[in-house]
């Protein structure tokens, strides 16, 4: 045992200084949500919509001015198929994975960005919790990809504790309910009971595309459409799965310690 401590110490610091400094966030090469360039879109083409399994891209049904496509990043699983089938580059691969937002509408692509989401909330969280946050995770039927990345938060590279954020076993001690999965019929009651067992004030984060909208598992005979209509959500983080850095950004967003970067379905300039 002492030998482990000794070798551990000789290895130096493994933890990144990110996000406090511009250090490596560990996501080199990770592809995020495809960027949408509606002006490149060709008429009479629906290749992207046909290739989108979760229905994040739909061809506009009403003949109105502006974009031909409805693009909802809350449904996107970042499979990149749209970027491969589009003949005109209207969808292009990107590294935009930090997609945490406070309002669901901010995940829908819009020509003009609506601003002023619930800014008041962050002030309240800050005054209530200071810099600390205790998180209760509930898996409501995920594929285990989200859990794999959530577990990575406690590895030495990300070391979530350094940010004052902790996972807690009991909902009684939890400030935030972090939900993954599309909510299966069998997990619904357990999920709602966990939420009810939390003291107020309490917050909810829908983590991963399944929890935001149901993703590829939405509906069917066993699943709901994520937390929609089941619990009130304070932060939405689509991603399939959201990587550890995206999770950290979304947690800091909830705490008012990081700005929201996505507005109207894209990076705010």
């Amino acid at each position: 045992m002492p030998l482990w401590t000794f070798f551990g110490l000789t290895r130096g610091t493994a933890t990144t200084a990110w996000p406090a400094s511009g250090a490596d966030n560990g996501q080199t090469g990770v592809l995020g949500m495809p960027r949408h360039y509606p002006d490149r879109c060709q008429d009479d083409c629906d290749a992207c919509a046909a290739a989108c399994l979760p229905g994040a891209i739909r061809v506009h049904t009403e003949a109105s001015a502006g974009a031909r496509l409805d693009v909802d990043y809350g449904r996107c699983v970042a499979c990149q198929l749209c970027t491969e089938v589009c003949p005109a580059g209207a969808f292009a691969p990107s590294t935009d994975w930090a997609f945490g937002v406070r309002a669901r509408t901010d995940l829908v692509w819009a020509a003009a960005t609506q601003t002023a989401p619930a800014r008041a909330l962050s002030g309240m969280i800050r005054s209530t919790f200071g810099r600390s946050l205790h998180v209760r995770h509930v898996d409501s039927g995920s594929c285990n990809g989200c859990e794999s990345e959530l577990q990575a938060l406690n590895n030495p590279f990300y070391n979530l504790h350094r940010l004052g954020i902790f996972f807690t076993p009991s909902p009684r001690f939890a400030d935030l309910l972090l939900v993954t999965g599309p909510v299966t019929y069998a997990m619904r009651a357990a999920l709602v009971e966990t939420y009810q067992a939390m003291p107020e004030p309490r917050w909810v984060m829908a983590s991963g595309t399944c929890a935001v909208s149901g993703g590829v598992a939405e509906g069917g005979y066993a699943c709901a459409a994520g937390l929609e209509g089941i619990l009130p959500v304070d932060v939405y983080l689509p991603g399939c799965p959201p990587n550890p850095a995206a999770l950290i950004e979304a947690l800091l967003l909830l705490l008012g310690r990081a700005p929201q970067r996505i507005e109207g379905g894209r990076l705010a300039d």
């Binding site: 551990g8 290895r11 493994a14 560990g26 996501q27 080199t28 090469g29 990770v30 577990q151 990575a152 406690n154 590895n155 030495p156 590279f157 990300y158 990587n243």
Partner: peptide, 16 residues
């Protein structure tokens, strides 16, 4: 901690 760090390295290689 060391096992988790090795796993993280492997995942970062996957991403690259």
């Amino acid at each position: 901690a060391e096992g988790r760090l090795l796993e993280e390295r492997a995942k970062q290689l996957n991403a690259k």
